[in-house]
Design a protein around this nucleic acid. Structure first.
Length: 177
DNA sequence: CCCTGATTCGC
DNA sequence: GCGAATCAGG
């Protein structure tokens, strides 16, 4: 791939937005993160203040996704800030654990539904769940992105859905073969 | 181990 | 000029 004017501009733009080199490389396509970094240097673009994970432009406004939880008898009110990092995407979620009385329901099969990380196609890695979410034709389409064990393409939750008919309610499935 | 950017140096 | 290899760090 050449560094066409378009690609260089995109590079500048994304770099200015604070995206990591690997993410920029992913979006540009056809180049490695090293290539991006090298190019950044050659362009004499302002580098990041300090190397390392100190380069994040707050990608998460305030999306509080309430995922169904297993019955919890602890009726305390606690606020826990969970931060986890994958790629350059820093997930900072403030999870409020309140008295769960109305949430007596449990997902079918007693399975914890993962919180979608809303990853784009380019952000997927070898160990992120590649379960598609939404309409691929719409722009809000994304992937689960949760952590998937080993080399599995899906996380533990979607792994189970992969081969199970939605109609398992009446156990009409799991009969063939 | 995952990731980050920085630098070097053969091409 | 390019970018893989390498380094240094979180």
């Amino acid at each position: 791939m050449n560094w066409t004017d378009e690609r260089v501009e995109k590079l500048k733009k994304l770099w200015a937005e604070g995206l990591s080199a690997s993410q920029i490389a992913a979006q540009l396509g056809g180049v490695s993160r090293n290539a991006v970094i090298g190019k950044v240097h050659r362009l004499s673009l302002p580098g990041r203040a300090k190397a390392g994970g100190t380069a994040n432009a707050a990608r998460t406004p305030k999306r509080n996704t309430s995922a169904p939880r297993a019955p919890n008898y602890a009726s305390r009110v606690a606020t826990r800030t969970v931060t986890r990092q994958q790629g350059a995407t820093m997930l900072k979620e403030e999870i409020e654990i309140e008295t769960i009385e109305e949430m007596e329901y449990v997902p079918r099969g007693n399975v914890v539904v993962p919180i979608s990380r809303r990853l784009g196609l380019t952000e997927l890695t070898e160990r992120t769940c590649k379960w598609p979410v939404g309409d691929p034709l719409k722009d809000d389409f994304h992937f689960c992105g949760c952590e998937s064990p080993d080399n599995s393409p899906y996380c533990s939750y979607h792994q189970k859905l992969a081969y199970q008919p939605v109609n398992e309610r009446r156990r009409a499935a799991a009969r063939a073969s």
